[in-house]
Simulated assay, not measured.
Amino acid sequence: MSIKPSVGDLFSLEWVKSSYSASDSNECIEVAHTPGTVLVRDSKRPEGARLAVGPDAWNGFVAHAAA
């Protein structure tokens, strides 16, 4: 399965930091949602690499991390 957000999606992303992160902390991940894709990036390097996963994979990761 190929996960590929559209170019328009990449320019209008709303990146969200975990509510568990301190507001002045730069050591966490940020997440952005597009239709059919969840993007994850390092808050220290917002222009760097991004991990793209499907919603089912993301939900599984979050459920496992919360357990």
Score class of each variant (00 low, 15 high):
residue 14 E to F: 01
residue 21 S to V: 02
residue 57 A to C: 12
residue 32 A to L: 06
residue 28 C to Y: 07
residue 22 A to Y: 09
residue 34 T to S: 13
residue 19 S to C: 01
residue 47 E to Q: 13
residue 33 H to I: 03
residue 4 K to P: 04
residue 53 V to Q: 04
residue 14 E to N: 06
residue 52 A to F: 05
residue 4 K to G: 08
residue 31 V to M: 00
residue 22 A to F: 11
residue 26 N to K: 12
residue 9 D to M: 01
residue 61 F to E: 02
residue 37 T to M: 03
residue 67 A to T: 07
residue 55 P to H: 09
residue 29 I to P: 10
residue 8 G to C: 00
residue 60 G to I: 01
residue 19 S to I: 03
residue 38 V to N: 05
residue 57 A to H: 10
residue 3 I to M: 10
residue 14 E to Y: 01
residue 26 N to V: 14
residue 30 E to P: 02
residue 39 L to E: 06
residue 44 K to M: 10
residue 8 G to H: 06
residue 34 T to V: 14
residue 31 V to L: 05
residue 37 T to K: 00
residue 64 H to G: 01
residue 46 P to E: 01
residue 30 E to K: 09
residue 10 L to V: 03
residue 6 S to H: 08
residue 56 D to N: 14
residue 56 D to I: 15
residue 51 L to N: 10
residue 10 L to Y: 06
residue 4 K to H: 15
residue 33 H to Q: 07
residue 42 D to E: 01
residue 29 I to G: 09
residue 43 S to Q: 04
residue 67 A to F: 01
residue 50 R to N: 01
residue 26 N to T: 15
residue 48 G to W: 08
residue 53 V to H: 02
residue 38 V to Y: 03
residue 57 A to L: 14
residue 9 D to T: 13
residue 16 V to W: 01
residue 28 C to H: 14
residue 55 P to K: 08
residue 15 W to H: 03
residue 41 R to L: 14
residue 65 A to D: 00
residue 13 L to I: 05
residue 41 R to I: 13
residue 17 K to G: 02
residue 11 F to I: 03
residue 57 A to E: 14
residue 49 A to G: 14
residue 65 A to E: 00
residue 36 G to N: 14
residue 34 T to C: 15
residue 36 G to Y: 14
residue 16 V to S: 11
residue 26 N to W: 14
residue 46 P to A: 02
residue 31 V to A: 01
residue 52 A to M: 07
residue 23 S to A: 11
residue 15 W to L: 04
residue 26 N to Y: 15
residue 19 S to D: 11
residue 5 P to M: 08
residue 22 A to Q: 15
residue 6 S to R: 09
residue 44 K to L: 11
residue 24 D to W: 04
residue 44 K to A: 13
residue 49 A to I: 08
residue 34 T to L: 05
residue 35 P to Q: 05
residue 37 T to H: 06
